[in-house]
């Protein structure tokens, strides 16, 4: 057996190298990091390339950003619509999902698993297929209109291909993304605290406002953030249910990458929206104690 030099001891190795688990995870970690970083780098680099060119990494211009913020450019309308739809979706979902989440946590008992499955099940069907299903339901002489006419009414409301229908589609599509974090948030509220508040004479409204809501807020905020981020990037609802009655920002990005073949402009739009969402996310997470929410302490 070869003698080990005194300076090459096990202690020295332990000091110089990370733990075996970390070393073993390194290749996958590098791969995942590259997979995450590479597309972002490409998009950011493209956003500084000459408009309508493929001169990525070989040209640098701020023209794409200048174009977006040019007052004569109407792309701000797309940002505005996406923002409004996302805010309205979050507000409506907060109102709709709270009673369901409350029921799943406190009232449904052994049925809550079944209710969860019912809300998850539509996610197994492609979003586009579900949205086309709604088109068939609401279209003239479709399921609703045709059925109402068959039983003697004038027919269904003419709501398809309107901004209101886009909002309805977004609320429908993103309900599970609000519901489950909210349910988790409510489940984190210790029942003892509610009992204690009640014993001390708090009314139901006081318990809800001063105990339940603040303690469930991390879950509610995560749900809101998740649905806001999904909502601001939503495009299928505006295209299929809305019949492009308004153009949302994700659709503008899609047009830039396809018919316009202006990848630098599409990239710049994507960077602006990513930055906006990134700043918002950091701001929200700055106010959240994730460790507490995930039950680590």
């Amino acid at each position: 057996m070869r003698a080990t030099p005194s300076w090459w001891g096990a202690e020295a190795i332990a000091l110089r190298l990370p733990a075996a688990g970390t070393r073993a995870a390194l290749p996958v970690a590098l791969l995942l990091t590259a997979g995450f970083v590479a597309p972002l780098v490409a998009i950011i680099a493209y956003s500084f390339a000459t408009p309508r060119s493929f001169d990525v990494f070989s040209s640098f211009t701020l023209e794409n950003y200048a174009g977006i913020f040019d007052t004569s450019n109407t792309v701000w309308l797309s940002f505005l619509w996406s923002g409004l739809f996302a805010i309205a979706t979050v507000a409506l979902l907060a109102v709709f999902a709270y009673p369901i989440a409350y029921g799943m946590d406190r009232l449904f008992g052994r049925w809550s698993s079944l209710v969860s499955i019912l809300f998850v099940f539509p996610l197994f069907v492609s979003e586009n297929v579900r949205l086309y299903g709604w088109v068939l339901f609401f279209i003239k002489n479709g399921v609703l209109d045709g059925s109402l006419k068959a039983v003697g009414f004038d027919g269904g409301p003419d709501i398809l291909f309107t901004p209101g229908m886009i909002l309805a589609g977004m609320v429908y599509t993103y309900l599970p993304f609000m519901l489950f974090p909210m349910t988790l948030g409510l489940a984190m509220v210790p029942k003892d605290l509610i009992d204690a508040a009640r014993d001390l004479g708090a009314s139901r409204l006081q318990i809800w406002r001063e105990v339940e809501l603040p303690l469930a807020m991390p879950g509610i905020l995560i749900g809101m953030l998740l649905t806001f981020v999904l909502g601001i990037g939503a495009v299928a609802e505006a295209k299929i249910l809305g019949g492009q009655s308004v153009i949302v920002i994700a659709h503008d990005i899609e047009i830039a990458f396809t018919y316009s073949q202006n990848w630098p402009l599409g990239s710049a739009l994507a960077v602006v929206i990513t930055l906006f969402i990134g700043v918002l996310t950091l701001a929200v997470f700055g106010k959240l104690d994730l460790d507490r929410l995930l039950g680590r302490r």
Binding site: T74, V75, I247
Partner: peptide, 8 residues
């Protein structure tokens, strides 16, 4: 595209 945006 600008015309499309103002239809809403």
């Amino acid at each position: 595209n600008a015309a499309k945006r103002v239809r809403g």
